[in-house]
Design a protein around this nucleic acid. Sequence first.
DNA 1: GATTAACTTGCAAACGTATGCAAAGCGGTT
DNA 2: AACCGCTTTGCATACGTTTGCAAGTTAATC
Lengths: 340, 340
Amino acid sequence: MEHARITSLQVAERAGVSQSAVSRVFTPGASASAKTTAKVRKAAEELGYRPNRVARAMITGKSRIIGLIVAYLENQFYPQALERFSNALQEQGYHVLVFTATNSPEKVEEVMRDLLDFQVDGIITASVAVTSDLTVRCNAAGIPVVMFNRGQDGADVNAVTSDNLAGGRKVADFLVRCGHKHIAHISGWEGSSTGRDRCRGFIEGLAAHGREPLMIIDGMYDRDTAAQAARDLMNAPTPPDAIFVGNDHMAFAVMDTLRHELGLQIPQDVAIVGFDDVALAAWPSYDLTTVRQPLNRMVDATVDMLIAQIDEGVVAPRKVAFDGPLIVRGTTRQPKGPET
Amino acid sequence: MEHARITSLQVAERAGVSQSAVSRVFTPGASASAKTTAKVRKAAEELGYRPNRVARAMITGKSRIIGLIVAYLENQFYPQALERFSNALQEQGYHVLVFTATNSPEKVEEVMRDLLDFQVDGIITASVAVTSDLTVRCNAAGIPVVMFNRGQDGADVNAVTSDNLAGGRKVADFLVRCGHKHIAHISGWEGSSTGRDRCRGFIEGLAAHGREPLMIIDGMYDRDTAAQAARDLMNAPTPPDAIFVGNDHMAFAVMDTLRHELGLQIPQDVAIVGFDDVALAAWPSYDLTTVRQPLNRMVDATVDMLIAQIDEGVVAPRKVAFDGPLIVRGTTRQPKGPET
DNA sequence: GATTAACTTGCAAACGTATGCAAAGCGGTT
DNA sequence: AACCGCTTTGCATACGTTTGCAAGTTAATC
C-alpha cells in the first residue's frame, strides 16, 4: 500500500485556488497575495505537502545537486574536505552527490557522464585527474566544473589549490635554516599538479640557498610506496638528515617506518616535514611539522566559484591558490638562522 | 550559449523511428527488435544522447539515488564505510546523496525531509540517532530506511551492526585471561545502542569470571572527552591496569594521553583495547588490539537489504548483527589462560 | 497456406511542477 | 464614474521520459 504522495494540485483544491497559485507560493520570488499565501500554507501544512524536487528540476533544468568526485577517502584530508563541502553546500540549498573514481581518466570520464545524466548543476573534482577536454565539454554544456586541490597547467579549467609552490619553498628554507645538510624529498605523485608544484618549490627553495636535494623519489601519495622510499633513502650510502614528504598521509607512513622498522629517532636522526596539516598531524603520536592547506578557505572558495558560475553562467576560468603557513611541531629541530 | 541537450525525440527523428522506440531501446527489459535497436543506438551515438535521469525519475518514481546521512567523518570508520557504500551502490546502479547531520534529532528530521523531497529510493543512516517515528513514516511512504552501525531497541526499523554484545564480552574475557586485575571502560556514547551494547557485553563478560569493572566513564565517542576520562582514571586512588575503550577513535586519544601526557607504557603500565579496527589501528604507532567490525560485510548487507526492500516493497524490518573477531596487537599482553 | 501466438511499434496519456500570457482585481487620481 | 498602472490569478503548455493499449508485423505450427 504505497502512501500516495501529495501534489500541488491536491493542496490547490483544499485551499480553493489554482495549482499555479500553490506553485507560486513555494517559488521564491513569485508573486502571491498575502491572503492566498496564507490559505495555501495552511492547506499545505495540513496535508504535509512539500514540493517535489524532481519535478521542479525537470521544469527548471536545475537540480540543485552538485556532483563531487573523489578518489580515495583513506587520506584524512578528503573526508575533512567532504564534510565541509557538504555543509557549505547545504547552507546554500545544494546537495552533494558523491562519486568515487580511481585515478584512471577513463573511469573519471565514465563517472562524469553519469553525473551529467543526473542533471547536476555543477561538478567538483577533488584531486582526480580529469581530461581538460571533458571539462571544456561540461563548461560548453553550461555545467561548471571546479578542480579542488589539483590544477592543470594552462588549461581552461577552474582550480582551487593552496600555493603549493610557495609551500615547497617554505619547507626548503626552513630545513636549511635548521642546519640540515642532506635533505631528501619523497614527492607527491608526479602525475598531479600538486605533487609537481610542491617538488618544484622545494627545489627552488633549496636553490635559493645554493643547495640541491639529496634525492627525490615519487611516493605516489601511497603509504606503501612512501614507506619503501623511506627505506631506500636510509639504506643509501648517504642517508638524509631531513625528509620533506609530499603530504601528511605519506609522512605518517614514513615516520612509522623510520621509528618502528629502522629504529630511528625523529627529529634527532631525521627530521620530517609533511604537507596538508590534517587533524592527525596534530596528534601527539605524530606531532608533525607540516604546511597547512587552508581547507576551509579552499572549500569556501570552491563553493563560491561554483555557485557564481551556476548563477551567472560560465565565465572565464579562474585559478585560485591560497597561501598556507608552515606549522612547526615536533618532527623538526628549532631553526637557527633567521627567516628569509 | 547553453548547449541544447539532446532528447530522445531528436534521436528518434534521426533514426526514423518513434520516440517510444528510443525509450524502449534504453529501457532494460523493454522489447525492441534488433534492427531498430541498431538504428537507435547508432543515432544516439552520433548525437551523443544519454537518457535524462530526472525525467526518468519523474515518470517511474525511482530516482536511483540513496540518501546517506552521516554524523562525523572525523572517525576514520565512516569515510571507510562511505567509500565502500559509494562503490557498492554504484555497482548496482545507485548513487549516493550525502547529508551531514549533527546528532540532534531535529536536525536529522529536517535532513530526512530534505531527502524525501529528492525522491530518494532509500535512506541509510550511519550512526545517527533518528526517531523511530520518522523511520516508520518513511517506510509507510514506501521508502526503506536502514540504520547502519546503530540499532534501536524493539523499534520497527532495519538495522545492520556488528555483534557489539559479543564483542564486549570477548574483550572482557581476553583482558581477564591476560591477568588484569583492574579493568576500566571508557564507553561509547550512552545514547547510542552500539555504546550501550558494547558496555553491557563487557560487564557480562567480566561477570562470567566473577568480576566487575573498576569504573565506567562515558567517552561520548569524542577525543577530548575520552582523553579527560583517561586522565581521571589514572589519577584515581586505584588506577586501572587495562582500559577497554568504546571505539578506536577514542582509543587513539587515550593512548596519546597515556603515553605523551602521563608518560605511561602500553601495555606494560596499562593495556588498551579498542573497537572497530579502522586502518589506523594497524599502523605501528598505535598497533591497537581491537574488535574488528566486519565493515565490508556490514556494508554489503546494508545495501542488499535496502535494494531488496526497494525492489520487493517494504517487508518486516530486519536486524542483522555480524560477529567480529578480536584482533590482538601490541597494546595488550599475551593471555595466559585458555580461551573460554 | 491458413491460423494462431508472440513480438514490435506508434500513439497518446501520464508524472508534478514552473511559467508566459491574458484576464481580472485593486487602489488611487482626475 | 472613468481611467490608469500595478499586482494577482487561472489557464494552458512545456519539461523528457515511461508505459498501457491497440494495431501492425513476424514467426511458428499444423
